[in-house]
């Protein structure tokens, strides 16, 4: 969801919708609501405080023809786009670390095969390894939804489930 204009001093978190990715160099909090099988990928450079969050929907963008227009839709292209934009803003490639959350398998439908969530997790891990970005923490899989909040400045990824206060975890 795109926001137009700014209100000075408004601490509202920046919402990262499905297939979107946002890079920030400040104390902004980036938030994705209600991840089921979608995966949240957070990258950050702890030295420069530059980081970003992607809310990906599908594993493989290299074989899709619209991944150039929508890199945030796919795990592999989203990771590369986040890295590129972070480096453009001054992040140091070799210092970047990653955290991921989401990728649940909510339903056992026949048409879902091995599970749509698992495919996203596997694709993200493969791409991170290929690019040499260490995966610092993860909260993935299961059969429940998650809402995530990422603060690039601290590298903290807060993961909430629908269990209220019991379901809050800090990565």
């Amino acid at each position: 969801m795109k926001t137009y204009g700014t209100e000075p001093g408004a601490p509202t978190p920046v919402q990262v919708g499905i297939s979107e990715l946002v890079v920030s160099d400040g104390d902004d909090t980036l938030k994705s609501y209600g991840l089921g099988s979608c995966l949240a990928i957070a990258l950050y450079d702890p030295n420069t405080n530059i980081g970003g969050l992607a809310h990906v929907m599908l594993p493989d963008g290299d074989t899709a023809d619209n991944s150039e227009r929508k890199p945030g839709k796919y795990a592999d292209t989203a990771i590369r786009a986040l890295l590129r934009r972070m480096v453009e803003q001054g992040a140091n490639y070799t210092a970047v670390e990653a955290k991921i959350a989401g990728g649940s398998d909510m339903f056992e439908f026949e048409s879902f095969g091995d599970g749509v969530g698992q495919r996203n997790i596997a694709a993200a891990k493969t791409e991170l390894e290929k690019l040499g970005v260490p995966l610092e923490a993860e909260d993935v899989g299961g059969e429940y939804g998650r809402t995530v909040e990422f603060t690039p400045g601290t590298g903290t990824l807060v993961v909430k489930t629908s269990d209220g206060d019991n379901g809050v975890m800090e990565l």
Binding site: F107, G145, R146, S162
Partner: peptide, 11 residues
């Protein structure tokens, strides 16, 4: 399902 609405739809 008994969960955040969007999480039920995204799969």
């Amino acid at each position: 399902i008994h969960d955040i609405g969007a999480a039920a739809v995204d799969p």
